[in-house]
């Protein structure tokens, strides 16, 4: 179980949080303009990499805020936590 440093509340147990999948996938502004393939790309395609993965997390049983996390999936080390709308502080 991770200890997650919520940018709004501080360090809390992982059980207070919910993972929300890959980060930095913007919802298309004009979905109706997209082909089936382009829409499917947004809808279904997600990375599952060994290494540093950028993901969304929600402090569900706390402040209910969403934020981003850079996590090394090979050892679960949390490399960075940053707010929605911010650029990842690491590569």
């Amino acid at each position: 179980m991770f200890i997650i440093n919520c940018p709004f509340c501080g360090e809390r147990e992982q059980s207070e949080f919910k993972a929300g999948g890959e980060a930095h996938i913007e919802r298309p502004k004009q979905p109706t303009e997209l082909s089936d393939d382009e829409w499917a790309e947004y809808l279904f395609m997600r990375k599952n990499i060994k290494g540093i993965q950028f993901e969304r997390w929600n402090h569900m049983h706390g402040c209910r805020k969403w934020f981003n996390m850079a996590r090394d999936t090979s050892n679960d080390e949390i490399k960075a936590i940053y707010k929605i709308g911010e650029k990842p502080p690491i590569k």
Partner: peptide, 13 residues
């Protein structure tokens, strides 16, 4: 509620 918050905070701030 979680889903609505998600859209409000991340897609339509």
């Amino acid at each position: 509620l979680g889903k609505l918050e998600d859209y409000l905070q991340t897609e339509w701030p």
